[in-house]
Structure formats: C-alpha cells, structure tokens
Write a protein that binds this DNA or RNA. Structure first.
Lengths: 220, 220
DNA sequence: CGTCACGTTGACTAATTTCAATAACGGTGG
DNA sequence: CCACCGTTATTGAAATTAGTCAACGTGACG
C-alpha cells in the first residue's frame, strides 16, 4: 500500500490482516473447489498456481513470490477455480475478502489499490498469452528467465543469478513445453555461453543475449 | 447488474453511463498507449482485443460481444495496454472510471459486481492459458467453436449455427496457430461431418463430437 | 549408503509451420 | 446490377520445431 492514507486510515488497514498462515512446501494454500473467503499476500516463500480439468489436463498459470497477491480467481464464483501450492515453506497474510470490501468503501486508496492489483493480473496474463501464442521454445525460456530475474532483482536479489524453485516439468507446463524441451533449451543456452546451469542454479552470463532472443520476434 | 439494489440505487446507477459511442467496423475503441478513462459495456457489435509488442509481435487476447465489459487492462497504469477493435459496426456504453469508483463506494452491489467482472476475466484468461499451453490444434479449434456457440446461445442465437465475425488469421492468432492450420482443421472437421463450413458460416452437425475432441485430453 | 525423484541426452516421430499456388467472396464503383 | 479487384480462404508439399520414448546420470534426503 503506497499512496496517500491518513494515520487513521492506516490504523484501519492494519485490521485487514487477521491471520498469518504458514504453508509447508508441497502443500496447498487453497485448492480448486474450496470456498473463497480471503485474498492472500505472500510474506515469504514461493508458490505456483495451476488450473486443472476433470479430464486430467493441467496448466501452471503462474509463479508467485513475496509481495504478490493470490486468490483473485475465487471472487467471481465464491469458489476457487485453481490450486495454489507452496514450492517452498512459505508464510502468507490472510485478508478476509468481506473486510476488504468493507474497508474499500471507507478508504478510497484501498479501493483503487485493489482494482489495480486485479488489472495488473489481467495485464500479466495478456503477456503470458502472448508468450504461449506467439513465441518459440527458445523465446519462451529466455523470456521466463528474464521475468524471474527482474522480479527477484526488484526484491533485492542478484540480477545475474537465481535459484529455480520449480522443476523442469513445472516450468514446461507454464511455458507450454515439455520438460525435455526446457532442459534442452537450458543446455543450448549454456553451450552458447548465455547462461550457466547447474541443476536449479542458473547464472546469467549474457542478459543482453537473452533479451535479443526474446526480441527476435518472428511472431507467427 | 442483477442483485439487490433499491430504487434509489438504480437511479444512481443510471448516471454511470454518460455516453453511447458508435464504433465503425475496423476502427479502434481504444488503442495501446491511450489514456485510460472509462470502461465500456458492449451494447451491440463484436470486438477483438489484442496485445502488440514493439518488435511487431501480436496476439489476439479475446473476442467480445454484447453485454461484455472492455477496458479493464487500463486500470493498473492509467494507460491502455492493448487495442480494442470493432469487427463489425458496434455500439458501446462509456462508463467513466472515476464515477464507477465513486458509485461503488455508495452501492455495495456495484462494488461486488465490478470485482466479479474482473475476477471473471482472470478466470477466463486461465482458460485461454490452458488452451494455449496444453491443447493440440484440433482441441483448440473445437474448444473455440464451442465457446463462441455457448456465448451466442446465451444471447438467444442458435446453438447449432454461427457466423464468424473474424478472419482465419485472427482466429489463428487467438489460438496460437497459423491461419492455414485453422483452415485445415475446419476442413477436417467438415470431412468428419462434425461441422459444415461455408466461409464464415459454420453449422454444427455434431456438438458432442466436438466436445469429445476437447475432452480427449492427452494434456502434454 | 541406497533409493527415488529430478534432470540430461539421444534417436525417432508427429504435429505444425512455411512457402506457394489457386480459388472464392464481397464490397465498390461504373 | 454487374464486373472487377483486393482480401480472405483453401489446399498441397517441404521444412522445421517440438514431442515422445527410452536410457542413463546425479543429487538430495532419509
């Protein structure tokens, strides 16, 4: 919450968070079909969200880290429509949705903030659609690495190094590729001295090179 | 606006729509970079939205019809991040965003409604990600047809017949396929007596058959 | 110290794109 | 009202990309 809020407002906003919850690695914060009651702000840890279908299809829709908000999918139908799973031990703030609605009416800055969070998620998903609909495997993987890097950097981590919290299979699901293609693409990038990969540790040797791959833009 | 609103509320909600705008076929309702000022409710006509990148890539992010809301992408940054183009002559109601925020605070039913619209869009996009990330060409095209059909049916049109408002290329962009693949897939469906295609007129002969294709679910 | 999940790599296959040629509309203006 | 032009759609063949199947490493963890 940046923006102009009075001290009185701040006091009210403090009442937004009722609970902190610890989520152990591998366990769900919420699952498809769960009753929607709250939004969650990640304090620490790393999540993936995924949609699943009855016929066994699965798609990772995003990876979330500290400071990001989860649960927006549940508002429309009062039920969650996707799963949120912790990829490492995590802690979240639970913000009961009713309280968010009530407070939003009293604190316009909060109202605007909530709208922007939802709009940002819509715009983010547009970007994923662009990636899935128009990029080739190398472009997708380069784009994925640069995106993670940028978000980690914004949180004070290195610009040139990262530890993947997810498996090749999860990356593949997110990018619409098989785990083998993800692995091979990492290897190719390593051969070309764009990155160094050791398991889940990735060091960026040539960020510009990765950007060039994304911008190569055949665009179907 | 379904839900419980008093007569007094209704009167207020009437002031939400300030202008009706006619959009001629082929022209934008808004474009990337335009200042965001309002949301739009489609009264009649048919739109596509697309994201574009500086390097010339393009992705159709959706097709919108009467009753649907456009413009949510602009809230986060006060600028539109995608283009909305009329695929046929259309009419929209312009709802100034400031007024939406103001009224939302006074009419909780409107507040909830706005949140649900945004959440619904997020969930819709999850579905598109699933399609783009995990379906094969036939599944995507079948899924696309069934989705259009269902939405048209909900508006009183036939369940078994539709007129496409968009080109094969636009369908392809939306589905992450080339226009040739879309065309070939239509032809294959026609051969299999699932549909009849004459240019943009499509008649569904075997809806169950199309559903079976979607549910075939290899899931990558 | 062994087991199991995760990751890499290779060979082969299948799906989709690309390139190219042709056909069929539909809107526009004579 | 008809003819023409440009856009849109279809279809084929070749090329390419990514997927599938399979074998083998390797590390983390109990």
């Amino acid at each position: 919450m940046p923006v102009d809020v009075t001290a009185a407002d701040m006091e009210r906003l403090d009442t937004l968070v009722t609970t902190r919850r610890r989520i152990r690695r591998g366990t769900p914060l919420y699952s498809r079909g769960d009753r929607f009651t709250a939004l969650y702000a990640i304090r620490s840890g790393f999540f993936k969200t995924r949609v699943t279908t009855n016929d066994g299809r699965e798609q990772v829709t995003g990876f979330q880290m500290a400071g990001e908000i989860m649960g927006l999918d549940g508002i429309v139908s009062d039920l969650h429509t996707c799963d949120a799973l912790a990829l490492e031990d995590a802690e979240v703030c639970e913000m009961p949705y009713e309280r968010i609605e009530d407070l939003s009416r009293e604190v316009p800055a909060l109202q605007t903030h909530v709208h922007k969070i939802m709009s940002r998620e819509i715009v983010r998903e547009h970007g994923v659609m662009l990636l899935l609909g128009s990029m080739r495997a190398e472009e997708r993987v380069a784009s994925f690495l640069l995106n993670l890097l940028q978000r980690l950097h914004a949180r004070g981590f290195s610009e040139a190094e990262l530890v993947l919290r997810m498996t090749r299979e999860e990356i593949g699901s997110y990018l619409g590729l098989t785990l083998e293609t993800v692995s091979r693409t990492f290897s190719r990038f390593a051969e070309e001295r764009l990155i160094e990969v050791r398991h889940r540790h990735v060091r960026i040797l040539d960020g510009r090179g990765l950007e060039a791959i994304v911008a190569s833009a055949n665009g179907r």
